[in-house]
């Protein structure tokens, strides 16, 4: 039996790993996006001590290797009496970590948001929350579309780290098959194929979303 045949026989394991990865990715990136939006809202308005602390937190996260955060949540928190299972530690770590990246991406776009539009909203009786949700955030998301696409790929790749804290996902499946049958090259090639396929699909979707912005003059491509 060739190595490839062995892998074909084990396709159920790959598939289960793939589904698990997609579940972790879908949940954590949704969380990350919402966390990023919420942090951007918290940063609205005049500087304050709270906002400064949030900026320090965001920067601290961005400057931290993701694996350290996963370790910290999974191995570190139990010493404080908080025990999360590996799966939720992984999802939580990914959501917070990439949430901070999203916040930073959005913040950059918010810095150059036209003040005149804010004044127009104020003049029309908008309060902060509604103005943010209806006028600022939609434009910031459209404006940062390519960066969001990039971040999605980063987050997908970071799910692979979770194998180290024992999450059963795609990389874990490849790991275990390569260990059992000693066929690392083929096993990991298959996994690379999966990551590429998902990334390419996301890139295509994000690119298509550009049409929505282009109609509104946000994209010129």
């Amino acid at each position: 039996m060739s190595n490839w045949e062995i892998l074909w026989q084990a396709r159920d394991e790959f598939w289960a790993g793939f589904l698990s990865t997609m579940q972790i990715f879908g949940l954590s990136i949704t969380g990350a996006f919402l966390i990023g939006c919420f942090m951007l809202y918290l940063l609205e308005g005049r500087p304050s001590g709270g906002k400064l602390s949030l900026r320090v937190f965001i920067d601290g996260m961005r400057m931290l290797p993701f694996l350290m955060l996963a370790y910290l949540l999974y191995y570190g928190l139990p010493t404080f009496g908080i025990r999360l299972d590996a799966w939720w530690s992984g999802v939580g770590a990914l959501a917070v970590y990439h949430g901070c990246y999203f916040a930073e991406i959005f913040r950059g776009s918010r810095l150059v948001f036209p003040q005149g539009q804010i004044e127009a909203a104020e003049a029309h009786g908008f309060t902060r929350g509604k103005m943010f949700l209806r006028l600022i955030l939609p434009q910031i998301v459209m404006q940062t579309r390519p960066l969001i696409g990039n971040q999605l790929i980063y987050a997908l790749k970071d799910t692979a780290f979770l194998v180290i804290i024992t999450v059963r996902e795609l990389t874990a499946a490849a790991n275990s098959l390569s260990g059992t049958y000693f066929i690392p090259t083929e096993a990991f090639l298959v996994v690379i194929g999966f990551y590429w396929a998902v990334s390419i699909a996301m890139e295509i979707i994000i690119k298509q979303c550009g049409r929505f912005g282009a109609k509104r003059g946000f994209d010129h491509a």
Binding site: Q117, A120, A123, F126, P138, Q139
Partner: peptide, 24 residues
């Protein structure tokens, strides 16, 4: 308060030099 201010502001309509339409 912000809500009260917004309510009184809504009694005025403002047109700006640079239009300030919401492009999305």
């Amino acid at each position: 308060g912000a809500k009260a201010l917004a309510r009184v502001r809504a009694k005025t309509g403002m047109v700006f030099q640079s239009f300030n339409l919401w492009p999305h």
